[in-house]
């Protein structure tokens, strides 16, 4: 079982990777990290499939793959550099465990639904998990995909929504409010769970709960989770870390 120590180590490695490469998008990676770690360490098996619809959380995905030994330290040092296999959003090929290049929001749920229905047609076992942002529910294609998934009764599909309430240039409420998001989702033929996206036990329970319908887990998360000066700050959607900020963040994680 994933320990708090492992989670802290992953958080530190994520910050180090972003600091060394001078890359932002840290806030949304930190909000996603806990759920991705539980998913990759405790839930996914060889027959399952995963789609990172929220492509700007590639850093968290790479760290999750590193946490289970599918990526190595030297891989992470290549993040966002020239001639890298590990760009700022997942690439189309070259990384085991990354099926699709994502980064343009609103594609992932359709890709996950297509994967789930293909497995059904092939009579093949396996679940499909799709990890999304909350902002991408503003994309029309996301709703197209949800309608399709529900209509096709894709019971092997699980959707996780990183609901950190902050997007690129404002809060989700300021930009295009759907608050509360889950009440809109409850109008579909789908199981909706709303949980604390940083409570490992709650994530575990929600991810292993079985249903005869598609499931959506709304993860109430905090952008920049685990680093107090980043917490719930929109600026950390984009900003990279200075050396001083990096050191402060690492000290804070180590002190807990």
């Amino acid at each position: 079982m994933l320990s708090a120590k492992t989670v802290a180590a992953a958080r530190k490695r994520l910050l180090q990777m972003h600091f060394e490469s001078g890359v932002g998008h840290i806030g949304g990676n930190l909000s996603a990290l806990d759920a991705l770690l539980v998913l990759f360490n405790e839930v996914l098996n060889d027959k399952d499939h995963f789609v990172l619809s929220k492509g700007h959380a590639a850093g968290a995905l790479y760290i999750a793959l590193w946490s289970i030994g599918k990526l190595h330290q030297e891989d992470l040092t290549m993040f966002h550099g020239d001639d890298t296999l590990f760009p700022g959003h997942p690439p189309a090929s070259g990384i085991a465990g990354v099926a699709f290049a994502t980064g343009s929001l609103g594609h992932g749920l359709s890709l996950a639904a297509g994967t789930a229905i293909a497995l059904r047609l092939k009579c093949q076992e396996g679940r499909t998990f799709c990890f999304m942002s909350d902002g991408e529910w503003q994309e029309g294609s996301t709703w197209e995909a949800l309608i399709f998934a529900c209509h096709q009764k894709l019971e092997t599909l699980t959707i996780l929504v990183d609901h950190n309430n902050l997007q690129g240039f404002g809060s989700t409420d300021e930009v295009a409010s759907m608050s509360p998001l889950w009440t809109k989702l409850q109008g579909f033929d789908i199981d909706v769970h709303v949980i604390d996206g940083h409570d490992l036990d709650a994530i575990r329970y929600a991810l292993t709960h079985r249903s005869d319908r598609p499931r959506i887990i709304v993860l109430n998360t905090v952008k920049g989770h685990g680093v107090s000066f980043m917490s719930n700050q929109m600026a950390w959607h984009y900003l990279p870390l200075t050396l001083e900020q990096f050191q402060t963040a690492i000290e804070e994680i180590e002190s807990i």
Binding site: G106, S110, L121, K122, S141, E144, I147, F148
Partner: peptide, 24 residues
Amino acid sequence: RFMNAGVAEQNMMSVAAAMAKQDL
């Protein structure tokens, strides 16, 4: 194996891509 994906062309294309990825 014949699916009416509805009036939702964006979803239809991505679903098609994922199905092809599964060797259909």
